[in-house]
Design a protein around this nucleic acid. Structure first.
Lengths: 195, 195, 195, 195
DNA sequence: GGATAACCGAGACGGTACGTCACGTCTTGGA
DNA sequence: TCCAAGACGTGACGTACCGTCTCGGTTATCC
């Protein structure tokens, strides 16, 4: 209950720093992003950065997830209509990553996870795990309700959907409405089969 | 026809350098990998590295693709049985990335693509494009042969399969036979539908 | 009056670096001396060197002049007896550069002045100008006092004395008392004439 | 008598290389001069340089001495009039080093001697020893002839004259006729005494 | 006249040092 | 205790130079 002694941390700095990170990431890849540049941009001492984040990776992860979370709700909807719910979720994400700014942020997140040593996978899972569990849960609900065959593994479906999105991000800038149609087609193929 | 003047580049160094990169990547993530260490390991001057590759990213890409290409044929088979062909292709890749050594290499490849500045996407596509076109071609064949519905977009199928693999790589070390079963289940769900 | 923001430079490092330079110069010529070695010896980052000196040349100059300045007073004495004063000054310097350690330092100073590009002459003159003006002043005093002919140019005398010393340094290690006698002889020849 | 087998060395290259060295030294100090640049300038392979000179230092020494030797005779004259002979020798040298191009060359020679490790003093003496012995010989002749006091050490006189010149070179660009007058004054002071 | 041998221009090579940049820590004065 | 500013040790970056080597090719003598 008692408050720690000394001057409390300036809460407004948090947002300023995350903003600086995102602004810099839009114009300069993860590798080019430096803690010095972040501190300079946010008008903040480097010590302040390291007081709050252990290194560049978790800082970038938080900056990206912060933008991701504020960009509207990405929870998997449950209207009872599985096809419509998956369509909507996939299109929502598709439009998010179609925005070049957002694509750069996600690419930075992947870079932070892939480049880092060992425990940086954990950071990456801060993004993937909640989304995956939301998807798995929604599919399991459909299985339980009998709308989907009982032998379907929800994890497999979640992998296919999220994997398609990830591949899209990593394949560079995306063009036009064509892509949105592909998301619809993916859900339909999974539900109806290709045969 | 005529040979350029001066001492020609030593062709054996190319392989020695790529070997050094791979050996180092097994024990030290992409971020920890240094050009100095590569040069030292390959018994080569740093100048020789920069004479042949512009930076760490394309060097790592070539080293990984070189191992990938030599690791046996990953072409999509065509036995006439689409289900069996996709099963086999997916399991082949699944086992490749299940090998921890290979997983590290692929993670490094992703890191090189994600961390690099701009044109490294192009390098990354050296891996993804050939695989994608093989897959797309195989599915299109099935569509043309009437084994698959005419309104199926082969690109969508390729995205789902490759995306699942990519997600697997990025989600850290994978355990056991469980995963292989998931690949079978993904192909089956796509072919038969979930409903 | 106010102090600039940020951590102030560590004043103790200055002396440590200059010491390291001198220690290294005793065993390795100016050309062999490397900034890396200096940094390693002084337990200092290379950045710290370049923060304080633009390159190797001015660093060496300061290191040598620092030792020269601390090695006792080399001011030209003024006892009223010009011959004795010049004898003493010349012998003092002669004994200084006869010390192999000091000779190496002075040779490094000359190398820094001669090898450097343009503005290192200025650094070199940090040594020569004060000595020259002291000598010139002493001779001018003698001229004014009538102890020396009025048509004598003090600059000419200073040149001859300092030049003899410089030539000695550049001519490699010097042997014994013979040299001291030569300094006495030089002053006597100048005062009394050769004829 | 017999000629060694194989293609003889191209004698014209020697001069071309020395020219290249001098041309480069005029615009870029000794430290900035590189063997690569010399080879490129002289249209010569680097192997050709190292076939003829062990390193940069002796090459520079030869290039400078070559120019020095061709610049007319610098032998000490012997007209019987010591004063006139020394005047003439000193003025000749003074005018030589007053030429900025020549001054740069001599500075490079000093740099080659001072910067190098150990045996480079030997190179420097290729210039100083012949001049010194010429001077010493001339003074000794005057001593023997009774034109100069018997207790005068010719080495001391040579030191004073050569040292004055060396100091002049190292003190940067020189201005005007003023300097020539100083050389005359130096000889006069030595001959007549300052008192 | 063929073999042999040294020369030559060009430029790749291993190594070392350069001067810069980034990381993560530390040290000021001050809030 | 927090904060901005910035110096600090460490270590990687990408470049330049040194002196050696390896190409294709040229000139000389020797057999």
């Amino acid at each position: 209950m008692s408050q720690p002694p000394g001057r409390p941390r300036d809460a407004t700095l948090h947002a300023a720093i995350l903003d600086a990170v995102r602004e810099l990431l839009v114009v300069s890849s993860y590798a080019e992003l430096s803690m010095d540049a972040i501190a300079a941009r946010a008008q903040v001492g480097k010590k302040t950065l390291y007081r709050r984040w252990a290194s560049k990776a978790p800082l970038v992860v938080e900056a990206v997830l912060d933008a991701y979370g504020r960009g509207g709700s990405f929870a998997v909807p449950d209207t009872g209509d599985l096809r419509a719910d998956l369509h909507r979720w996939l299109i929502e994400h598709g439009e998010f990553i179609a925005e070049p700014t957002n694509a750069k942020l996600i690419r930075a997140l992947v870079a932070a996870a892939a480049a880092g040593s060992g425990d940086s996978e954990a950071l990456y899972e801060q993004l993937s795990v909640p989304q995956r569990s939301g998807l798995v849960e929604r599919v399991r609900l459909a299985v339980d309700g009998g709308a989907v065959r009982a032998d379907i593994d929800p994890d497999v479906v979640a992998n296919a959907l999220m994997g398609s999105l990830l591949l899209q991000v990593m394949s560079g800038p995306v063009v036009g409405d064509h892509v949105v149609g592909q998301y619809v087609a993916l859900v339909d193929a999974l539900l109806d089969g290709m045969v």
